[in-house]
Design a protein around this nucleic acid. Structure first.
Lengths: 224, 224
DNA sequence: CGACTATAGACAGTGACACTATCGATAGTG
DNA sequence: CACTATCGATAGTGTCACTGTCTATAGTCG
């Protein structure tokens, strides 16, 4: 397969593919001459993965390169893949400024309560602490036990499903892929489901007045 | 309070505040003369909110402006705030290309199974469908019932907590703020907790070999 | 009163980022 | 042998979130 064919099957412009090659998001093809290369199915899959990470996962090119590095590097043990993928995906900027509140302590307490044992450099600790502090700084003190507990329970449910999916993968390479892809896409999947559940729950709690903007069937996928 | 004082208390450069004024993220101060304005506590809170939306929530300036518009506009009924906030926050780009897979159908089926009644233009529907399709396109067919169900159950838990927090707000204005802030920060909070729970669950499923990189206490917030 | 700093408003500039375009030399193709 | 495609390098584009500069005016201190 030549580059133009790769471009056609992946619906990605040739200059973009060249850019991905430069950025090591895409591995080089097999050289047949100084200025010709052959691409194969692995390149098609890789481009699809890259576009999924960038478009659906919202990663930057640098983050995507890190994730792909994890998939490619055989020397990284499976047990580390989660950590590397998590760290690559979790935006680092907000975590730099050290928290001024008690968010870290609240999250640590939550971990203890739930029996969550994690390394102290788990990016989720800093992220969650930062969010709790931010709520406090905004004067929106809704982050009570009554909120944190359901969130934590939900996180446990999702993490259980995530790990079950990983364990179900046929090969170790498959597991690695599931971890990397699942870390990125899982956030988006949950965000979508949360929006749906929020609206449904909102209807349950605050029923519409007799006015009639009742939601029709759920399963209409036309929305323009 | 003059602009320099606002700048000092919010740790935000003056040019940035001017930029926020131009972009309508920050309301104008009270004019005392053609080139002087007074700012007050509402401006301090607003700047904090803006920075929370941008840094922690990861919104663009345009998205943040939409969210702030919801908070400011008294004519928007509370029942619509969720929808507007969700639509402002959910990234629109990935949703434009219509799904080629059966993701929409799978999500619709899930909604029916769980009794979720929502408007067909709920952004979560398109987002979740897109993610499901993306998994399929990547050949990672882990999105089975065994995964979707826990995710959905978790979404219900979180949405229940979200709505309870909203209902607990003292005033309608407070409710609006909780909705807008919670929609944005809730995603981040859950993402953080999910990372923690993933690692904890990973230790449960795949205990460390007798080698000793055992995670220490959970509640260390030093991570540099 | 006058030096000095701060301010509003307008507008131009910056750096990061994700592409996108062009070019020259070569390679395959009808 | 014309003609398109490709490689690699380099440069350019558009967007975004600021950031800097300028002018005219306002407050502030000695």
């Amino acid at each position: 397969m030549r580059m133009s064919e790769l471009s056609a099957t992946t619906v990605t412009p040739v200059p973009t593919l060249k850019f991905y090659l430069r950025e090591h998001l895409l591995h080089a093809g097999e050289r047949t001459s100084p200025n010709q290369s052959q691409y194969d199915e692995t390149h098609v899959e890789r481009v699809r993965l890259v576009r999924a990470l960038l478009e659906v996962g919202g990663l930057s090119v640098a983050q995507a390169a890190t994730v792909i590095g994890v998939l490619t590097d055989d020397s990284i043990p499976l047990s580390s893949v989660f950590g590397v993928a998590q760290r690559a995906v979790t935006m680092p900027a907000p975590l730099t400024r050290e928290s001024r509140g008690d968010g870290a302590a609240r999250i640590a307490e939550l971990c203890e309560r739930r029996g969550w044992t994690v390394y102290p450099n788990n990016p989720g600790l800093a992220l969650a602490a930062r969010v709790v502090d931010t709520y406090a700084e905004l004067g929106v003190d809704v982050i009570t036990e009554a909120v944190l507990e359901p969130y934590a329970e939900a996180a446990d449910l999702v993490a259980g499903a995530d790990l079950a999916a990983v364990a179900a993968a046929p090969s170790e390479a498959g597991m690695t892929t599931v971890v990397a892809v699942g870390t990125v896409l899982g956030d988006a999947l949950f965000a979508g489901l949360r929006r749906i559940a929020q609206e449904a729950e909102s209807f349950r709690r605050f029923p519409l007045p007799e006015g009639t903007p009742a939601p029709g069937t759920t399963y209409t996928d036309e929305d323009c």
